[in-house]
Design a protein around this nucleic acid. Structure first.
Lengths: 199, 199, 199, 199
DNA sequence: TATGAATGAGGATTCATTCAT
DNA sequence: TATGAATGAATCCTCATTCAT
């Protein structure tokens, strides 16, 4: 199970990602994955423990990528929470449009499965933590107001999801970013919305 | 395939809902469903075309129930958009807490499947339409401001979802409602958040 | 199991005959038979013990009919063996054209099954016996010459079968009768074919 | 579905032939076939598309064997039609006695099925064609007289069949050959049987 | 390491048969 | 007698997994 050829491992993950995104787990045949990846069926078992492991690895890989990109972006923004929030949202949407499969994929993760693949759960928590810490920074800095940052941190990636998951209306990337930004900003910054409106 | 005994049909759907919510699709055995429903295996095939159809029917049934409850609530509120929005959110959360299965269930719906079960997609669109029309009413009445009600309509049910889908933090129902309300209200009413903040 | 309504019994047999002739035994569903006969599925079990019994009854019925017609024809010819042989062949072909199903049906009788339905085997033997006795009469009368009438008696119905079983060439009834007659007559009467040819 | 190991394929066909001959199609379990062939159940599906395909393949294989043997025999006889006819009949009977299953097997072939397995129908036509061409040669050479060789070609294999299909009388191979030869020869050579007899 | 033929446990589905009405 | 909804035993077939090469 030692990974010797990372190139091949990635080829398999890429092929599997596409297939898992297009069909429910039980309709994806490992023979199809092998063929799509251009390897033998047996080879899959050299790189992955079993079908479940392959599936979770696909997700894990995608998620890791997303997290790496997010962290990179945020690091450049130093400590401006609002700008960080914007960057995160922009990056989430960008990633969603670049990897249309991923959201469809995550759809099917059951927590039943994740239990067996602890690293995966960790990554997911990491994303939440990252967003949550940005919000907390904003709160500390007096820029944001939010009684439950741990909930809001869950909301944000799901706003992207809401749109990606259903193919129908084909919102363009720019509009989606703007709308989510508008939605989120107002929720986090409007300290006294009622007063504001009354004016 | 004619529906013969609606009582029995519901008994099967209820049993299946529980099982499908607890395990991924391919781990749910029809023999288990039959046993749980207290009917013979063959009986399932009198009421449902096959396993896929049963699964989608479970979802459809849950969704219909939710929609019925939503509509009932809204009818009582007459034409106050803000109150309607609140009711919808309250009802969505209430339903989520009452049917913890449903969200776990919908997790696994792929749009690939839904295509074959057109009614299902229709129900889903109906929910979106219901929320969207409330927002539009609010906009017309000058209470809300939202450049993309069709996107916001997708956001709202997903805010509930974001929390329900992950079992960990066990937010209480009341807190969740309040947070979503806060989030949504500010997003829909803050006409000029930037000005507001600058003041 | 007492037969009360012979009309209904015949309706079932007729419907079953058509279906059994068109498809192999295991592809014929009793629900189809019931529907084709215009009765309920349960009704089949009032008139027949089970699927096998229905199948054999269909055959038995067809065979009985054929035998009755043959015997009727022969009785009228009194004791002329050649004329009787001709009549039998003519009648066999006529029956085959009138009941195109029957030959296709008999195709599928396994002797395994017949063992359980003794009457059926008896009918079949009766047909052979009838033809054999005509040949023996001819031999006794010096008209025929045949060292193995019991074999020839098996040949004759199979000559009809050879053509009926394959739908392709669509031989007309008249030609078929003439050819079988020619074939059989020469085989039974040509006492010294070699001499005949040398002449 | 590529044929991987012809040895194994033949082993399966042989095992299946025996079982299909002994019981009607629907009583033969693929698990039994697998066990009899000494392979796993899944292996059957590597070599054959499904149960129907296996069944038809068994027939096809038997028929091909018969045809090969017939052609071999005929080639050795050069152009003597009478001798060829005798050889064919002798070979047909020999094959029938050597492969008592085959006739029982073919019993159950419906033309409905054959349509899906075109090669099979072709083989069957080939046998007819082979016999027909022998008769036509004889007619051209003035040895035979037959107004419908295409019908006679269908008669001949069925003469063998008539006896093989019913287990009861146990005619010995020699007697059967002689009787069929007698029957066929006289039918094909008796130019004017009536004149001949009158003499 | 890489393969893909072989495997067989597992599960969806069918359909003859029953039986309450 | 007539029915057809309900049944579950029976069986085909799938497909993840193994392992000899």
């Amino acid at each position: 199970m030692q990974v010797l050829d990372d190139q091949k491992r990635l080829k398999i993950i890429a092929a599997a990602a596409e297939l898992f995104a297009a069909q429910p787990f039980h309709k994806v045949l490992l023979s199809d994955v092998a063929e799509a990846a251009g390897v033998g069926k047996g080879t899959l078992y050299i790189y992955f423990k079993n079908k479940d492991d392959l599936y979770l690895s696909v997700l894990y890989s995608g998620f890791s990528q997303l997290l790496d990109q997010l962290r990179e972006t945020i690091d450049q923004n130093l400590q401006d929470p609002m700008q960080n929030l914007e960057s995160v949202i922009r990056e989430l949407v960008r990633f969603a449009y670049q990897n249309p499969h991923m959201y469809e994929l995550m759809r099917a993760v059951s927590w039943h499965q994740v239990a067996k693949h602890a690293e995966w759960g960790a990554k997911r928590a990491e994303l939440r933590g990252l967003i949550e810490s940005i919000i907390r920074q904003g709160i500390e800095g007096g820029v944001f107001d939010d009684p439950h940052p741990e909930l809001t941190a869950r909301f944000i990636p799901n706003l992207v999801r809401s749109v990606m998951i259903e193919s129908s209306p084909a919102v363009d990337q720019y509009t989606l970013v703007e709308h989510i930004l508008r939605f989120t900003r107002s929720a986090l910054t409007a300290k006294e919305p009622k007063i504001c409106l009354e004016k």
